[in-house]
Design a protein around this nucleic acid. Sequence first.
DNA 1: CCGCTTGTTGACAGCTTGTCAATAGCCCTG
DNA 2: CAGGGCTATTGACAAGCTGTCAACAAGCGG
Lengths: 204, 204
Amino acid sequence: MTSTAPRWRRLEPDQRRAQILACARRLFGERHYEAVSTTELARESGVARGLINHYFGTKRELYLEVIRELTFFPEFAVERLAHGSIQQRADASMDRFLDVIQRNKTMWLNTIGTGGYGRDPDVEQILQQADEIAADRMIETLGLADIVEGREELRAMMRSFSGLARVATKEWMTRETLTRDQVRTLLSTTLVSIITQVHGPMFS
Amino acid sequence: MTSTAPRWRRLEPDQRRAQILACARRLFGERHYEAVSTTELARESGVARGLINHYFGTKRELYLEVIRELTFFPEFAVERLAHGSIQQRADASMDRFLDVIQRNKTMWLNTIGTGGYGRDPDVEQILQQADEIAADRMIETLGLADIVEGREELRAMMRSFSGLARVATKEWMTRETLTRDQVRTLLSTTLVSIITQVHGPMFS
DNA sequence: CCGCTTGTTGACAGCTTGTCAATAGCCCTG
DNA sequence: CAGGGCTATTGACAAGCTGTCAACAAGCGG
């Protein structure tokens, strides 16, 4: 008679992980790290708090997982547009970059976009890796893959460029002191300038 | 007889504040925000934990105070060197900028230098103000103070430039993928490029 | 020497996070 | 269709952290 309607459903680990992760993505997107408690995270996910630790070990690891996921998102397709001058390719590349960010505006602002300085080496490392990937992708897109002289320096400069891109994008998205077009011009022109006027002369 | 050696000394509020602040500066310099507890902060300062709250209200406010103090540090003197071409002035300006940072290496790396992304709007705001000040100072140093056409856009671009400066400096100081000279060249050349090739044409 | 101002303490309440043994879905077999 | 086992999930627990506040005492002024 007292036919038992199960009080909770048993899911595949992958599913449950994904579910919690989705919730974490949302909450960490709304507020910053310490303003989100695991208690809330659990309640919102409709799950016991212990389960979060079971799957992710620690609150911080869960957070890092969210960041990690996000940084691998912007797969702004390399898609050889080997055509055109380097300036044109830079334009196209930056355009695509801004597209991706614009589509994920909120998410981006609350994570990567945070020029924030919350002082967390782990997070920093993850985003450094992201910059690394972005830098390599840019080099490839711009057709500079065959440069060998000062290759490491070029990569370092591209990573630095990511810093400019980040802040400039934020100027556009949150302060609205620059338009999208202005940001694109700023970025692509600067990008070309770094390659031709800084790196070029430096490694003749 | 049992002459009472006082168990604790009573200090002027300013002194006590400064003492705690100094200690906080040290600890927050070594580890990141959440890795430092007020308990430790109090023990290290040789003070009751409650006193910290008494003076700063909250742990976060204490932290913000530390940051605030640091960001006003780099007073890289404006000192009109109105002489020379814009490129020369940019060189000198960036040289001085790197000097200041080099002198306060550890401190800088653990606070501002943290390209970190800890997700804290309050901290972010403080550093935005710092960027603001730095940007205005750069404009003045470069003798661009009388530009009126696209003035706000210029300031926004200078703030963006700070992002580049930050990451590039870190490339030099922590990863050592760029030398100091390379960073200086990268920064000053890019700076000039932004002014002459981006902002100039944009606001004819 | 005493009393008043106020810098300083210490205990308290509430909330946080990570652990772990116990519980209960649900698949699989007989 | 019953029951057994695997394991996903729970819930209580301990330790720790933060902010508050009434009580205490350092040291100056009368």
